[in-house]
Every structure is written in C-alpha cells, then in structure tokens.
Write a protein that binds this DNA or RNA. Structure first.
Length: 403
DNA sequence: CTTCCACAGGAACCAGCGGACC
DNA sequence: GGTCCGCTGGTTCCTGTGGAAG
C-alpha cells in the first residue's frame, strides 16, 4: 500500500463500498425513520390512539402528556398514530389538522406560533411582529377555519426551561377564546421531573391524560433490532451474537433504542469499509468505542475556551501520574493564559468550571482532605485522553499551545 | 487535643447582551 | 432607535471543613 497512488486508494474504497453486500437498506437504521411496526409499544399506541380518536367523532380529545427518557419510542408512537389518524379523518370527512412541533428546534414562543400558523397555510415574517400579535393572529386564523387542531409539542421541556410556560398556559386556555375551532395538546418530554417547572394550572390541564414510556429491556431491544435488521441487512450477514450484544450494550445505557440502532448501523458501516462479508461481534465492540470517543470529542469541542485550557492543564499534569489537584491545575492554567496573552479567571470561577467538567464525565473531581495541607479536589481523567486531546486541538487557540 | 492549611462552595453583586415592546 | 428586563458568566467576599502536623 506504500506505493499506492491516490487513485488506487479511492478506487479501492469505492470498490469495497459498492460491491458490499452488507446493507440492503441502511436508512431504516437512522434515527428519523418511523417503522410501520413498533414492538413492545402496543400499550402506548393503544392509549394514544384511544385518547386522540375522539377527534374522529368531532369531539375535542383530552390533552395528553407523555413522559419517557430518550430512545423509548415516544416520538415514533405519536407520529405513527397521528399520521393514521389524519388519514382516517380525511376518509370520514372530519376537519382535523395535526401540527407537530419540536421545541428544541423551534424554541421561542414566536417560532412555535409561526409554525402553527404555517400549518394552517399562512405565512408570518421571521421577525418584526410582537409575539402577542402573532398569537392573536393564530387565534383569529384558527377560528375562521373551523377545525379541530391537535398540536404536538415534542421536547416541550426545552422551550419551557429556556423561556417560560407562558405560551403553554395560553394554549391550554385558548379554547375559551375560540368559538368555532378547538385545540388539543400533546406534550412530549424526556425529563421526568419536568412538571415542577409548570404552573399548577398548566400542569392539571395538560395532564388530563398521562402516559409513561418505560425504558426498553435488553430482550425488548433485541426484538426491535432483529425486526429492523431484517429490513436493513442482507440475509445472513449478521454474525451470531451481534444483535444480542447491541441490545445488551444499549440496555446498559438506560434502554435507549436509538443508541442500539446507531450501534448496529455503525457496526455495519465498519464491516462495509473493511470489505468484510459479515458483521461480527468485534465490529460492534469497535463501533461502541467509536461512539464513545466521538461523543467525547464533540463534548470537548463545544466547551468554552477557559474550560478547554483547564482540561489541557489537567492533561499535562496527569501525563506521568494519575491524579492532580485544584491548586496545581490553577497554576498551570495561569501559565497557559499568559502564553496566549488572555485574561486569567479567578480561582473561584475555576472551581466551578472543574465541577462542570466533572459533571460532563470527562474528569472526576472528588474533595479530599490532605490534612494540614488543606482541603482540595483530587482530579483524575475519566475519558480517553486521546479523544479529549483531539477535541482540544480542534480549537486553533489551543492547538497553538500544544505545538 | 488543638491548630491551621488550602481550598470548597454559598451569597451578593456586576457588566454585557439579546430580545420584547413602545 | 430607545428603554427596560432577564439571563449568563464573571467577580469579590465570605464562612466552612477534614485530618496530618505539632
């Protein structure tokens, strides 16, 4: 391979990928794919459907509030049920409009209302109008169209935590101000303690019906993966134990189905890239490591500069020993800031930043008394130092220091 | 048994900034 | 296009603390 020209290398890669007989349809393993069947969610489908089905008779369905941690199928179930419901309503000639909004993507009250108005077939300028005006416009338009509207607010905790529950409050009371249309709300959150953020009135109104999505168990994940794998891979390319291992690893991570599917997909991609005819257990292990590393790199990259410098200081100090402590880190950090010619933050602040790094799981910082030599935190690196370093030098300002 | 180190971490405060509203 | 407001990320000042050294 030493003498291979770029053309040869490329040809080799293209050849492997195009000739590969691994994936029949890789897309069904992507997070936004909504399957026709959702194993082990029959109960939840039934509940969501029975609440929302009132709409088919022209009644306003009760508001519904859905909890469950990430990767438990909340969004998939709601999307599946609402799309079937919409079809059925069309058949029966019921005037029903369903609007699905992810408040992580559209997080301000303005954006949410703008989306709602768009789903009624109108446009709002991206800025320039007071939010209260957008709200009353929405109300007017809705009432004029005489229909039943189901508003699904996915990841609603993002909007409420970042802004407030004002909009939610207004939406729960909107029916009092409408004469010809009705609104039902479906709220989805993966924060189980989310209701503590809500005004009691919003809480009781939104929680007319509640539904919890429990995490998947390892056997359940196995079923989900097996079913999806049938669509995704050619027959017989998965070695025995591949699905079981993916399921077991993801079950350990709080039963997150999305993670399990990611793992299976990346395992397949690794096999494909290697030109291997089969996906093996080793591919899964490699994929797992890669996911973990990528996560670390991404987290480190997104850190503010001073946190990065602290991490770099810790990395330097733990090169030849396994732990360091606050004072030592601070002194090293100070030198780094001088070298860069930027201001140095106070020790107090650094203490907080160290706590944050601890919470992110990159390092561990435990308070310990060193007797007469005072109280401090002993700091050890928890994640792969190479992955951390990769994230650090992606920042040119830090890269300058490492060279 | 007391002392006393080297910080932890709470409280109050402040500068800067982006958004709402007029 | 000015003003008010709340949030973020920082500071200063402070009190609290576990256990080796004396």
């Amino acid at each position: 391979m030493l003498t291979a020209s770029p053309d040869d290398i490329l040809e080799d890669v293209f050849e492997r990928v195009t000739k590969s007989r691994i994936f029949k349809n890789r897309d069904v393993l992507l997070p936004d794919y909504i399957p026709e069947r959702l194993p082990h969610r029959e109960q939840q489908i039934k509940k969501v459907a029975s609440v929302l089905a009132q709409a088919l008779k022209g009644y306003k369905p009760n508001n519904l509030f859905i909890y469950g941690i990430t990767g438990t199928g909340k969004t998939a179930v709601v999307k599946l049920v609402t799309s079937k419901l919409q079809q059925k309503a069309r058949q029966l000639g019921v005037r029903l409009r369903i609007s699905f909004i992810n408040t992580k993507r559209d997080d301000t009250a303005y954006r949410i209302l703008a989306k709602l108005i768009e789903s009624l077939g109108f446009k709002v300028p991206p800025t320039g109008i007071p939010t209260s005006e957008v709200y009353s416009r929405f109300k007017r338009l809705l009432d004029k169209r005489e229909l039943l509207m189901i508003i699904v607010l996915d990841e609603i905790d993002y909007h409420v935590k970042k802004h407030s529950d004002d909009l939610l409050y207004k939406l729960t009371r909107i029916n009092e101000e409408l004469s010809r249309s009705k609104v039902s709300l479906v709220g989805i959150t993966n924060d189980v303690n989310f209701t503590s953020w809500l005004d009691p009135r919003v809480k009781s109104s939104l929680g007319e019906e509640e539904l919890v999505f429990p995490p998947y168990t390892a056997p359940q994940l196995r079923d989900i993966l097996a079913e999806r794998a049938k669509l995704a891979f050619y027959e017989g390319v998965l070695e025995d134990g591949v699905i079981e291992l993916c399921a077991a690893l993801a079950a350990r991570e709080k039963g997150d189905a999305r993670k399990a599917l990611d793992l299976l997909r990346i395992s397949g991609e690794l096999a494909e890239r290697e030109g291997s005819p089969k996906v093996t257990v080793d591919h899964v292990k490699m994929a797992w490591e890669q996911i973990e590393k990528d996560k670390v790199v991404e987290v480190v990259k997104s850190l503010p500069l001073h946190s990065k410098l602290i991490l770099l200081a810790i990395l330097k100090l733990t090169k030849n020993k396994d732990s360091t402590y606050t004072g030592e880190v601070y002194r090293t950090y100070k030198e780094l800031t001088k070298e860069l010619g930027i201001e140095t933050l106070t020790l107090r602040r650094i203490g907080d930043l160290i706590s944050e790094l601890d919470m992110l799981g990159l390092i561990s910082a435990e308070v310990e008394s060193r007797g007469r030599r005072g109280l401090t935190r002993i700091i050890t690196v928890e994640s792969d130092p190479k992955a951390i370093m990769k994230g650090l030098i992606a920042d040119p300002r830090v890269g300058e220091l490492v060279r």
